[in-house]
């Protein structure tokens, strides 16, 4: 089984801990992981902002870079959804524009092999107890792309429930969007912030120390708000942590905040 990591541009440049945790977790589970270094970005920011043509070279790149792997694993629900939902559309639109089926075939080649981390763990490896240890109170935000586009269902919560020492608190209004939405966060900053503030208030109401998610773009937005809020707060700080970091933590190599 040849497995490649698609780290995603955000994890690579800004939040590498999730990608590092994914590598450690998979290796602990006996999976040999490659990181093809010619990879970069799936094109989601361009596509969702209305620049479909600018994503086309990235579709081809994804196909080239991950050619030959049985599975491409990514610790990002929205990037997985971008590839699985939108690559076929990009291919179809190019065809409709009379540019042949080259893009459609590139999309078709990579799309079925790309899996979000929890899909790979549960569906391919068949594990829910990954042997992790995380002695903290955690609440889980199922980001929209994972929830609705990929249909991750109970996979993330199943994995969290099996973590030793972890106390899981149900997040009120869990299915509501956190307000990130890519360029939405800057094009509609007031609505985005109002949504984020409600998400955080719900998370705080659980008394959890950790707001866990499987999508670092959402966590970037939430952690940005938390850091702004935390300065000057008296109560225990809440922090956003990627699911991969929790699953990678063990008694011998525990999670540490910084």
């Amino acid at each position: 089984m040849r497995v490649a990591l698609f780290a995603t541009c955000v994890n690579d440049a800004v939040l590498p801990r999730a990608a590092i945790a994914t590598v450690r977790l998979l290796e602990r589970l006996g999976v040999r992981v490659d990181f093809p270094e010619q990879q970069s970005c799936c094109g989601q920011p361009q596509f969702n902002t209305g620049y479909r043509h600018l994503t086309e070279p990235l579709v081809r790149r994804m196909e080239r870079v991950f050619d030959g792997y049985d599975h491409v694993v990514t610790p990002s629900g929205s990037c997985a959804a971008m590839v699985r939902d939108n690559y076929p559309r990009i291919g179809a639109k190019a065809q409709a524009e009379g540019r042949g089926d080259e893009l459609a075939r590139a999309a078709q080649a990579v799309t079925p092999r790309l899996l979000e981390l929890t899909e790979f763990l549960v569906d391919v490896l068949g594990v829910t107890d990954v042997g992790a240890y995380f002695p903290h109170k955690v609440t889980y935000h199922p980001s929209c792309h994972g929830l609705r586009m990929l249909g991750l269902g109970t996979r993330p919560l199943g994995l969290l429930r099996a973590v030793k020492g972890l106390e899981l608190a149900e997040l009120p209004g869990a299915e509501e969007c956190c307000g990130f939405g890519g360029t939405f966060a800057v094009k509609n900053p007031d609505v985005s912030a109002a949504m984020g503030a409600d998400k955080i208030a719900n998370a705080r109401s659980t008394g959890a120390e950790v707001l866990c998610g499987a999508d670092n773009s959402c966590l970037l937005h939430l952690q940005g708000m938390l850091r702004r809020q935390n300065s000057g707060r008296q109560d225990a700080p809440l922090r956003a942590v990627h699911l991969a970091e929790i699953l990678a933590a063990t008694e011998t190599t525990p999670w540490s905040p910084a």
């Binding site: 929209c144 609705r148 299915e175 969007c177 307000g179 939405g181 939405f184 094009k187 509609n188 609505v191």
Partner: peptide, 9 residues
């Protein structure tokens, strides 16, 4: 068209 976070609800 930009008045959405594309959450899909």
């Amino acid at each position: 068209p930009f008045a959405s976070s594309l959450c899909g609800a």
